[in-house]
Design a binder for these strands. Structure first.
Lengths: 211, 211
DNA sequence: ACCTGAACACCGTTCAAGT
DNA sequence: ACCTGAACACCGTTCAAGT
């Protein structure tokens, strides 16, 4: 990759790819150099050191979240589309997003999405504190959902498995929680179509907030 | 610390303290050995290696979240108290919680809180899907809030500062978002008493879900 | 202006050896 | 059963030296 002249951008590209695929720990200066086909020390000339390299990747990620184009016929649809685009963006680069968060730039990363949401809230006739509440609610919903979703994907077999946890045939103290409520047990134990849950949740939330 | 005979528990105590205060990266085997006053290699006899040491710390954290005693006169109050206790527990050990999350044990960590919430939902007469919705909603609210809160504390001076972002005197494209809505701008720009926001939010959420 | 290898101070881990 | 130091293969970083 990037066989020709070594560039700062080239270094960042390869570094970003490495982090996206294997996480920040996999980004060692020696491995990056090997990937780029240069000496380890050449990298330092272009990006300073490892820390500022990571900072640059974080800056890039924040910028990437700035390109957000809502779609849909009415404000409610467009708000849902913002949420969906945000979810997609966060899911695509979990490690980089985590790095943004570690550096305290989460709020700045969410700014473009916030602006889009404000715009749609106004278009829907919502103003002031109610518009602010909508912005925060959607943002929290998306972030929370992505966190839960990532977690589920990384450990498909929960320990202990959820059916065992919520089933009616388990220990007495479990019974106190769910035994008398099989519908609840089913709701919490069933395999989840997370994308469906996501859109349904956001749609309901938005409907409620615009009502 | 732990001057006498080296114990597995003693190693874990010191390691946990190190992680709580300085994060997992600060937990090097050599530093831990220095803190314990032993040879680096002695630690290996007690805990295997660094990875299983971290695993043990994660197990401890999951167990710590298991001691959750709701307080309050009615279900709504007790649900709010569960949320508050959960928030406190997550805030007290952010690094350890992050490690739990990385290992895909987040759901197991939240199980005791979920059981408590289910119990209170039932006590309030909520059953089935509505009870499940309450459990998830409260959990998301707490996690989302703690994430935002942590982020704010770690970077008290946001870049760019929020007043500049939401004020009426900034660039045209900002105006498109907020200029016509000073109350919204104020709501999003004002310094936040996060604890007040938290309890107010949870109270409103619970009231809405129990109504 | 850009790239290099040698060298430094770290790191986790293994292992043979002690008691 | 428990602890130790030496040694290994890593790591980020500095620096003097090359072109």
């Amino acid at each position: 990759m990037a066989r020709s002249a070594l560039t700062r951008d080239g270094v960042l590209d390869t570094a970003a790819a490495l982090v996206k695929e294997h996480g920040p720990d996999a980004l060692t200066m020696r491995r990056l150099a090997a990937e780029l086909g240069t000496a380890v020390t050449s990298i330092y000339w272009h990006v300073g050191n490892r820390e500022s390299l990571l900072d640059a990747l974080v800056e890039r990620t924040v910028a990437d979240l700035g390109t957000l184009r809502p779609r849909g016929g009415d404000p409610a649809e467009r708000i849902v589309s913002v949420a969906a685009l945000l979810r997609r963006a966060l899911r695509d680069r979990p490690h980089l997003v985590a790095m943004v968060h570690e550096r305290g730039l989460t709020e700045r990363m969410f700014l473009p999405a916030q602006r889009a949401l404000i715009h749609e809230a106004h278009a829907a006739g919502l103003r002031g504190a109610r518009a602010a509440a909508l912005v925060r609610a959607v943002q929290f919903q998306v972030v929370g959902h992505v966190l839960v979703e990532r977690n589920r994907e990384r450990s498909p077999t929960q320990s202990p498995a959820e059916p065992d946890l919520w089933g009616a045939d388990t220990a007495p103290d479990t019974a106190a929680g769910t035994d008398a409520d099989p519908e609840l047990a089913a709701a919490l134990a069933a395999p989840i179509d997370t994308e469906a849950v996501f859109t349904a949740g956001v749609r309901a939330l938005v409907a409620g907030l615009l009502a």
